[in-house]
Amino acid sequence: MGQMPLHKRINWVSTIALVTTPILAVYSFFYVSLCWQTALWSVIYYFITGFGITAGYHRYWAHRSYDASYAYQLFMMFASSGAAEGSIKWWSRGHRTHHRYTDTDKDPYSTKKGLFHAHMMWMILKDTDSDGKLKGRVDMTDLNNDALVRFQHKYFLPLMLFMAFTFPTLVAGLGWGDWKGGFFWAGVTRLVFVHHATFCVNSLAHWLGEHTYDDRATPRDHFFTAIMTLGEGYHNFHHEFPNDFRNAIKFWQYDPTKWLIWVCSLVGLTYNLNTFPNNEIQKGRIQMQQKKIDALKAKLDWGPTDADLPKWDFDTFIKLVKEEGRRLIIIEGQIYDVEKFIDHHPGGRMFIKSAIGRDVTNAFNGGVYFHHNAARNLLQRLRVGVLKGEVPSQFVSKDE
């Protein structure tokens, strides 16, 4: 199916909201005074509505990473409505699509289409087929059968307008008489910050940071993104283990959403907190570490491989030493040419010269001196052959 014409793809409701609210927020900074009570309330309400998205929309409804009491669900439903990011059903549908089709054309906010597209352009231009249907298929049975989700979806517009603008204005107005500040600061400006914090999960978390557990997709882990998004910045972990209620697993990593869910579990508001088996988590981390090590190793000269080297029996080896004057030694079945190393041997020339034409495995491994990684790595580049067969006992060095 083709794509809808550009003029039909514009989502005018989202466009007006995403353009108007920042303009009003800028107006607030210059023309609306901010008292300390309203400032504090704005910050508190930012966290309430922000957690409504991260703990509610994201980790509870979209991923079902834990179970929750009805009271908790009700609170999160109202709190998340105040973030004005669409209904639970709409938001979760898009997010599940994002996880199933990450970085593909069916990913609604794929960073492959550009960082700005992932951040907010996907909400301005509808990404649908020519028949208007959303791309991708995901299972929404659980949310379609959820009465609270259906209620919020049906009455989302009045719920959103009340929780996003009216409620914070009422608190500031009735609480300390700051009606204008309540609307512009706790309502509009707070909403802009919540919006772009969430948007950073779709953009920044797919661009900044490390591929800690897998590098086959764009999600990344970074502390800065976690700070910006109430703990959603360990996004590589999340995409690998999406049904884990945590985004951060280290005690020092910033994930207040995880802490909130856990604290609520202590009083029975949340329960059955899902965690992915640590053994499997560590496998992913170690596999990525090994991949990075392998990439670094590939840049270094490790000398020739066995397949690249000739295979000599001892008679050939000793002939090269005695008749051609080659300065060759044998260590652990490998033949080394030490011609250029004799004058640089830390233990002096004598030991190297006495080893020429002999198997000095015992001496190398502790008989004379137990050599460490530096010596063994250096030897890799001096290899010229692989020994085939046995070494006569009289040519095998003994311990010192």
Rank of each mutant, 00 (worst) to 15 (best):
R9E: 05
T15C: 09
I16W: 11
L18Y: 05
I23F: 07
W36K: 13
A39F: 10
Y60W: 11
Q73M: 13
G86V: 00
K89E: 12
G94A: 02
I124F: 07
L125S: 09
K126C: 01
G132V: 02
T141L: 05
N145C: 09
V149E: 08
A172V: 11
G173L: 01
W176Y: 04
G182V: 03
A186S: 08
V188Y: 01
T189P: 01
T198G: 06
L208K: 08
T212M: 14
Y213W: 12
D221R: 07
H222C: 11
F241S: 11
F245S: 10
R246I: 09
A248L: 10
A248P: 08
F251P: 10
D255E: 05
P256W: 07
I261K: 02
S265N: 08
N278S: 14
G284Y: 03
Q289S: 15
K291Q: 08
K292C: 06
G303Q: 10
P304L: 13
A307T: 14
D308E: 15
L320T: 04
R326E: 07
L328T: 06
I330Y: 03
I331D: 09
H345A: 07
P346H: 08
I352R: 05
K353V: 10
I356A: 03
R358E: 10
N362R: 13
N365T: 05
H371A: 12
A375N: 07
G385W: 03
